[in-house]
């Protein structure tokens, strides 16, 4: 485990070097570290950002200093606190794992051509037919590896390898909210109107980000996700 400065007010805890070799195990370990740091409430720590192989810790150097030590030791002090939070907890955690089993969330998707702007592009690249793509995409099980890019944008791990399709050369300026896309070996859902370069294959009627709610996102890091193919009519009736 490496701890590296990300500027003077954040640092990155590199939990693993690689993601692709063992996605499930890596994700579990990143989430374990994330939860431990969240529970630890280390003085000066403001917020956390888990990603594929790492957990970033955002902190207020002034608050860290007030709780301990000299200015030239802010980083070392915090890194020591982080290490001691993470290491000894591992034995305890194993007993807890069962209680912390990830949630399974089903997301309905309408794969009609009206929403799946890039189904043809994906078909051309993967040499699969439209129905085959839809069937493969909607029968797999995914996990939320991390959330970023825009609030609530989920990077999902677990895309069947033969569906991988390179991003579009020229990103779209505006993608409708709820659009489901494939970007390289990943799949994800655009929660908001935003630009983006992924290949769009469908759309969900669910609202993935709602700032009026707390928590504001439907999905959280680590959640298990399944897609269910729905008709255009169902899309309308489920629309939020």
């Amino acid at each position: 485990m490496e701890i590296i400065p990300l500027g003077d007010s954040a640092l990155v805890v590199r939990v693993r070097e690689q993601f692709e070799d063992a996605p499930e195990e890596t994700l579990n370990e990143v989430l374990r570290v994330f939860q431990l740091l969240q529970r630890a409430t280390i003085p000066g720590v403001v917020e956390l950002a888990p990603a594929y192989t790492s957990v970033a810790v955002f902190f207020d150097p002034v608050a860290v200093l007030k709780s301990n030590g000299a200015a030239n030791g802010v980083f070392d002090e915090l890194a020591t606190r982080i290490r001691s939070t993470i290491v000894p907890a591992s034995r305890r955690h194993r007993r807890r794992t069962a209680a912390n089993a990830p949630r399974l969330i089903e997301i309905p998707i309408c794969y009609d051509a009206e929403f799946g702007f890039d189904l043809d592009r994906v078909a051309e690249h993967t040499k699969l037919s439209g129905p085959e793509i839809i069937n493969l995409h909607s029968t797999g099980e995914y996990r939320v590896a991390c959330i970023g890019f825009v609030p609530g944008f989920t990077f999902l791990a677990g895309l069947p390898r033969n569906l991988a399709t390179p991003r579009r050369d020229v990103p779209r300026k505006e993608i409708p909210p709820g659009s489901v896309g494939i970007g390289g070996a990943q799949t994800g859902i655009y929660p908001l109107r935003s630009p983006g370069g992924w290949n769009l294959i469908g759309r969900t009627p669910l609202k993935l980000f709602d700032p009026a709610k707390n928590p504001p996102t439907l999905l959280h890091p680590g959640d298990r996700v399944r897609f269910r193919a729905i008709t255009r009519e169902e899309f309308e009736s489920l629309k939020q």
């Binding site: 990300l6 500027g7 003077d8 007010s9 954040a10 990155v12 950002a49 990603a51 594929y52 192989t53 790492s54 970033a56 955002f58 991390c146 959330i147 970023g148 890019f149 825009v150 990077f155």
Partner: peptide
């Protein structure tokens, strides 16, 4: 992909750096 922060200078393939500010993405 991993976290970025306001103040981070990232370099996309174009070789032209971007200094991130408060509205930057999280990852």
């Amino acid at each position: 992909s991993e976290a970025v922060a306001p103040g981070t200078i990232q370099v996309p393939p174009s070789g032209k750096p971007i200094l991130l500010l408060g509205d930057c993405q999280t990852i």
